[in-house]
């Protein structure tokens, strides 16, 4: 039905360009040979990539972010999958309320969660600790895992479990052999989404990092407020490429369109 160049198509193209252009310009910019940001970039060099290694705060924060995101992903996936199963399979009176409660961190702005957690953790002595930061990241990631697992379960046929059970499998075997493999796409997507949520986060981390350890997005954020040089571009380019890998896995395993329900994803 659609012609190649309908007016709507052109507007859609422009808007898509608008949304992806900030990411597109980062990579050429990182290859510039001058010391200031300009576009189109001037000259060509890889100096801004080699300069990353001279800045231990970026390398360290990158590794720290990876570690934090991986731990967050594993914990959030475990906790979220367990809750999803409890809510769907062992449906009980009040499970609707619990479900609403589990998703409620999505409805409060990340900034306010950050403030609340900082003040409360200061009171109980968790502020500035790795545990505190990890817990906060788990909190904001779990709702996504729960949502994805529940979506996965909504089309899950429980007679499959019965079939295995009556063939002689113990409940744990049934879960490992049947339930988990069938839920794998949902659980894996939940894990990747949790990873990206943690890896990208600035607003909550802002309040919870300690002076000595910081996450990569936060390091970039701080650096950008002091000076704007192509160093940020080279780091960003690397992060974009890394994210792209995960995004493509996510698209293959689950489909990005299914990830975005009607719930919010706050910054």
């Amino acid at each position: 039905m659609s012609r190649k160049f309908s007016p709507l198509g052109i507007i859609a193209f422009i808007v898509v360009l608008f949304v992806i252009s900030p990411l597109l310009v980062v990579i050429p910019t990182s290859l510039t040979s001058v010391k200031y940001l300009s576009f189109p970039p001037i000259g060509f060099s890889l100096q801004w990539y080699s300069k990353i290694w001279d800045r231990p705060e970026f390398v360290d924060s990158f590794l720290f972010s990876l570690e934090l995101a991986a731990l967050t992903a594993v914990i959030a996936t475990l906790v979220g999958t367990m809750s999803g199963l409890a809510l769907h399979k062992y449906r009980f009176r009040g499970s609707g309320t619990v479900n609403g409660l589990l998703l409620s961190p999505l409805t409060v702005p990340a900034l306010i969660i950050g403030i609340a957690v900082l003040l409360f953790f200061t009171r109980i002595g968790l502020a500035g600790t790795f545990t505190g930061l990890l817990l906060a990241h788990v909190l904001i990631s779990v709702p996504y895992v729960v949502r994805l697992v529940l979506t996965g379960l909504s089309s899950f046929d429980y007679t499959l479990e019965r079939a295995a059970y009556i063939m002689g499998a113990k409940p744990l075997r049934v879960f490992i052999d049947i339930t988990l493999p069938i839920l794998k796409p949902a659980v894996m997507s939940g894990m990747i989404f949790a990873f990206l949520t943690s890896f990208d986060n600035v607003t909550v981390s802002l309040f919870l990092v300690s002076p000595t350890t910081t996450t990569l997005p936060l390091a970039i954020f701080s650096h950008m407020q002091e000076s704007l040089d192509p160093l940020v571009a080279s780091i960003s380019a690397l992060v974009i490429l890394l994210s792209l890998v995960f995004i493509i896995i996510l698209e293959r395993v689950y489909g990005l369109d299914r990830l975005f329900g009607s719930n919010s994803h706050s910054h």
């Binding site: 007679t159 019965r162 079939a163 059970y165 009556i166 063939m167 002689g168 499998a169 113990k170």
Partner: peptide, 10 residues
């Protein structure tokens, strides 16, 4: 169920 030695078709 898993100890009853049954076969079932759904």
């Amino acid at each position: 169920s898993n100890k009853r030695d049954l076969g079932m078709v759904f």
